[in-house]
């Protein structure tokens, strides 16, 4: 029983210790000139969906939940955001070439169509980020139009 107690104490200390590891916040004060919303004159309805359902992981500005203050949750989120931005960063949208934009738009449409994005693990907590059928339709139509216009 004593050994269990010792292990438990060590573990507790470790848990406390990791709380002191710093977190890299994905937040910026300004909206860059290359931002998707800025360059595309996005309609308000689409803008709202993008902001709530996509921008937390796919832009330079995350609206963090309270539990981001607790490790190791913060690391978990940091990993998600890093990966999300690697795939697609709306803040840097306009730095992409037409070819890359076309590819990204195609992926965005497929991901929304296939209910792969936003991630289930994300909408589980962010209930408002879950896209309704009509929101999905609106987003897909908007992205498809954008894609068509790029190649004209």
């Amino acid at each position: 029983m004593k050994i269990v107690k010792i292990i438990a104490w060590i573990a507790l200390i470790a848990l406390v210790a990791i709380q002191f590891f710093p977190v890299d916040y994905n937040q910026s004060e300004t909206i860059p000139q290359t931002d998707f919303m800025l360059v595309n004159n996005v309609p308000v309805t689409v803008e709202k969906s993008l902001q709530v359902s996509c921008y937390d992981c796919h832009s330079n500005n995350t609206q963090y939940p309270w539990y981001n203050k607790v490790q190791p949750v913060a690391w978990f989120l940091e990993g998600h955001i890093k990966k999300g931005k690697e795939e697609l960063n709306f803040s840097e949208w306009d730095s992409l070439t037409i070819r890359r934009k076309t590819s990204k738009l195609r992926s965005i449409i497929k991901q929304i169509e296939g209910n792969k994005m936003p991630l289930d693990s994300y909408t589980l907590i962010h209930r408002d980020a879950k896209l309704s059928e009509s929101e999905k339709k609106l987003l897909i139509e908007y992205m498809s139009d954008l894609k068509e216009n790029l190649n004209n």
Binding site: I7, A8, A11, L12, A14, I18, P72
Partner: peptide, 13 residues
């Protein structure tokens, strides 16, 4: 309880 919590956090690390 403490052990479980600690274990989870260590795994994450």
């Amino acid at each position: 309880t403490i052990m479980v919590m600690a274990f989870i956090s260590l795994t994450a690390v």
